[in-house]
């Protein structure tokens, strides 16, 4: 048998959840290990940054949050032949990306001084020997040459294991391009996905069993989300929060949802419904529609005073 492929995994601005999903390959791990060997993985084994081997495949979790992330990403970009951008943080910035609504100073003050669980009477913000935050979170592709994007927070282990095995065998990998509604088992009303009111899940209680959640007043990100997970959440009566990011046709997941929700809101009374009604019921637009993708949005960060 030919030499085994050398695989590496790396974490940058993520939470390590994506690595757990790799650890969760279960028996598929055996299939992977038959074709490949893990040669570098600071999360799972003892590795040194100054002794990184040449790699055939590198799986990277997390986006670029600080200057250390950038440095390591640039270094690894030279070491790996095929780079998998792994998980929503790497692909779109992910939840840490909501930090882009604040300045670096605000974030540091919150983390080191104001947060309730922090005791820091001298109000010291560490700035030596620690990585410095960059002005905003950026998706990985700003720094690395990406060969394959596998979003998900975290990506489904079974889907990824299959993809990695296919990749190692030299087969082409095709990830779905349709939106979640296409694969969601819930029944779509014939008049389309329209809402007459917007409620939080606790206000509705258990939603009706088989009906689309949007038509029951719950904001479901299905229309703007790629169908990679197989509609896991709507299948168990929880609205999709968009954790796999947009379909390839959508530039900006949040903007697409703004359009999807607002356009058809109160469609039965299209011409008489108060146009403010929909906006009045949604307080946290960014938090609702950009939970996972703000750094990859058209406007990826809050404009600071004067923008300077």
């Amino acid at each position: 048998m030919a030499d085994k492929a050398k695989i590496g995994t790396m974490w940058l601005g993520g939470c390590s959840g994506c690595h757990l999903s790799i650890a969760d390959f279960h028996e598929s791990l055996l299939d992977v290990l038959e074709l490949a060997e893990f040669e570098f993985s600071p999360v799972l084994m003892d590795t040194k940054y100054d002794e990184v081997p040449e790699l055939d495949v590198l799986i990277v979790e997390g986006g670029i949050r600080n200057d250390e992330n950038r440095e390591l990403a640039e270094m690894l970009n030279e070491k790996a032949k095929f780079i998998i951008c792994y998980g929503t943080c790497a692909c779109y910035g992910g939840i840490p990306g909501l930090g882009n609504l604040f300045t670096v100073d605000e974030l540091e003050e919150e983390a080191y001084i104001n947060s309730l669980s922090t005791v820091n009477p001298d109000k010291i913000i560490p700035n030596e020997e620690v990585p410095h935050l960059e002005s905003r979170v950026r998706p990985l592709e700003d720094v690395m040459d990406i060969d394959l994007m596998v979003p998900g927070c975290p990506p489904r282990s079974d889907v990824v294991a299959q993809a990695v095995v296919a990749l190692l065998k030299g087969e082409t990998i095709e990830l779905p391009t349709t939106n979640l509604c296409e694969v969601c088992p819930r029944e779509k009303p014939p008049e389309g996905l329209a809402m007459d009111f917007i409620k939080r899940q606790f206000e509705v209680g258990a939603p009706e069993k088989d009906l689309c959640l949007i038509s029951q007043g719950l904001v479901c990100m299905g229309p703007a989300t790629v169908s990679l997970c197989g509609a896991e959440c709507p299948s168990i009566a929880i609205q999709c929060r968009g954790c796999y990011g947009p379909t390839a046709k959508v530039l900006d997941q949040g903007a697409k949802m703004v359009s999807a929700i607002a356009s058809d809101y109160g469609i039965d009374e299209d011409k008489t419904v108060d146009p403010e009604e929909v906006a009045n019921q949604l307080d946290d637009i960014v938090g609702t529609f950009y939970t996972y993708t703000l750094p990859a949005a058209l406007v990826p960060a809050k404009m600071q005073k004067g923008g300077k």
Binding site: V258, A262, S263, D264, D270, P275, V278, A279, L282, I285
Partner: peptide, 8 residues
């Protein structure tokens, strides 16, 4: 429809 979108 545009009117509602603009409010958001």
């Amino acid at each position: 429809k545009l009117d509602r979108r603009m409010r958001l």
